[in-house]
């Protein structure tokens, strides 16, 4: 636990907005590399950028879902960063959607057609829509206005949104591929852990 205390001490000095800065720099950096077709963007930058934004969103969702179990398991407390992690995940989903809509399919009618006709797009879109009210209410004023209980209840939408995000990835790949399965298993596991520990809390001590 000494290590956890040292880490918590160091983390206390790190402001939560660092997450937004790092997220924005990363997003711009990837866009710049795509624009100039550097590294993985050499040949086909559009799909690679679309995927890079989508994947970082999934990673941030996994990290966000790990905050509570991590504290319970190791004592490392990242709770003050959780809101920034979640909102940054939303911005990456938004960026992923914009690349898809503007650079990839390139027309409103085709976006609509994809959403309606392709189940994996439908599922991704649902996840995106679920995240919008969460992002909008990710501020102290909304918590006060809604009341903590109602706010917390609504923000449980994070779980289905994350699961749908992982399903979206698994559904779009060809053949048996490991990465999307790892994300889905990790997210399902983290959501399951949450319910198991909730059940335990409900029992009388």
């Amino acid at each position: 636990m000494a290590i956890a205390q040292t880490m918590n001490g160091a983390l206390r000095r790190l402001p939560a907005w660092t997450i937004y800065i790092v997220g924005a720099v990363y997003a711009v950096w990837e866009f710049w590399r795509a624009l100039n077709q550097i590294g993985p963007y050499l040949v086909e930058p559009i799909n690679v950028l679309e995927r890079a934004y989508g994947e970082i969103a999934l990673i941030l969702m996994v990290v966000g879902l790990m905050v509570t179990p991590l504290r319970k398991l190791t004592g490392v407390n990242l709770i003050k960063f959780r809101r920034a992690i979640g909102v940054t995940a939303f911005f990456f989903v938004l960026a992923h959607f914009l690349v898809f809509a503007i650079l990839d399919v390139q027309s409103v009618s085709r976006v609509w057609e994809e959403v309606v006709k392709r189940p994996y797009v439908t599922v991704g879109m649902l996840s995106f829509l679920m995240l919008i009210p969460l992002a909008v209410t990710s501020n102290n004023m909304s918590v006060r206005k809604m009341g903590a209980a109602a706010w917390r209840k609504m923000h449980k939408l994070t779980y289905p949104a994350a699961i749908l995000g992982a399903v979206h990835y698994l559904w779009l790949v060809k053949g048996f591929q490991l990465e999307p399965i790892i994300y889905l298993v990790a997210i399902l596991g983290l959501v399951a852990v949450r319910y198991v520990s909730l059940e335990r809390q409900k029992q009388p001590a």
Partner: peptide, 8 residues
Amino acid sequence: RRIGGGLF
């Protein structure tokens, strides 16, 4: 999409 057209 024809490969080689860049980001746009």
